[in-house]
């Protein structure tokens, strides 16, 4: 499957010394819903702004539809629709007028407005000034603006931000329908469950670096693998000797033993070995793997 977005070793600094993106590479397959996951401030929006040519990276290159993106060559963006953070709308104009404005810039027939308004369920509110719109309505209008040029690639930065559960479900359904129509969707979020529900591919960014990239199945597999078990026992050194043939076990500062296991099936094997050798077990605690810890960081940052 060809990639619709391809980023290679992208770096960007806002101020001298403050690196926002650090050698970030990612590939978005054509037809995918690519979930771009990261905590607030991880560099998601900066990556999106780089893709759209809004900022110039200090290093690296970005290819959209196999063409390098440059400020001097914005024509590449004709097949891209975007919604970056809060929707960019003029509050003194109505929803319809905001859409008409985009049509004027891009020479799109006005008939398309009715179509996108129908898609985002804003037909009855189209003549209302957008300053009277709720957050959800503004997000839907932003989405409608992004869809006006019938883009092949849709870039959505936190599209469910500030929405109530109904609004989130509505946006999620719209995104799923758009994928069914053959569009590629690049969706950034800081909510793991949001991405898990909708994405087919995932990229996880932390401190401007890509820490995971793969399909949603690979992500699920990783979550179940590479676990760590913490044991509190009466003879720690003996336990380490007993387990070292099968596992990597180390004594840590708090007199507990850390044992690296491949998956949850290894836990009963460890316990059985210890019981057979008459070791008293005081505590068995499963530590989440690094990726899982990262997810927790991401999820917690929202709270």
């Amino acid at each position: 499957m060809s990639n619709i977005i391809s980023i290679n070793e992208l770096s960007y600094s806002y101020q001298k010394g403050k690196q926002v993106l650090n050698n970030l590479s990612l590939q978005v397959p054509r037809g995918a819903i690519y979930g771009f996951l990261g905590a607030n401030g991880a560099g998601k929006t900066t990556t999106i702004r780089s893709i759209l040519g809004l900022i110039k990276p200090s290093k690296g290159n970005i290819q959209l539809f196999n063409q390098a993106i440059k400020i001097s060559n914005p024509e590449i963006l004709k097949n891209v629709g975007s919604l970056i953070e809060s929707p960019a709308i003029y509050s003194h104009l109505t929803g319809y007028q905001n859409l008409k404005l985009v049509c004027k810039y891009l020479n799109i027939p006005y008939a398309k407005i009715t179509e996108v308004l129908h898609l985002v369920n804003l037909r009855t509110q189209k003549d209302k000034k957008t300053k009277a719109y709720s957050t959800g309505m503004k997000q839907r209008l932003g989405l409608a603006m992004a869809l006006l040029n019938d883009p092949e690639l849709l870039i959505l930065d936190e599209p469910t931000s500030g929405l109530d559960p109904t609004g989130i479900i509505e946006i999620r359904n719209i995104i799923k329908n758009l994928q069914n129509e053959g569009k590629t969707i690049f969706l950034s979020s800081h909510l793991l469950n949001e991405i898990e529900l909708i994405a087919t591919s995932v990229g996880i960014i932390k401190d401007g670096k890509m820490v995971f990239q793969g399909s949603i199945q690979e992500l699920e597999l990783l979550k179940k693998k590479n676990l760590q078990v913490n044991l509190k026992v009466d003879h720690p050194q003996k336990v380490i000797d007993l387990l070292k043939t099968q596992f990597i076990a180390n004594l840590n500062d708090t007199d507990t033993i850390k044992v690296d296991v491949q998956d949850e099936n290894d836990i009963p094997i460890i316990i059985e070995t210890l019981v057979r050798n008459k070791i008293n077990i005081y505590e068995v605690r499963l530590e989440k793997n690094n990726l899982e810890n990262l997810f927790i960081d991401i999820t917690n940052s929202d709270q």
């Binding site: 759209l52 914005p74 975007s82 970056i84 809060s86 960019a88 509050s91 810039y105 891009l106 603006m145």
Partner: peptide, 11 residues
């Protein structure tokens, strides 16, 4: 309106 991002991300 924070609309530069929309204006400059158009083709």
């Amino acid at each position: 309106s924070d609309t530069w991002k929309r204006l400059y991300s158009m083709p």
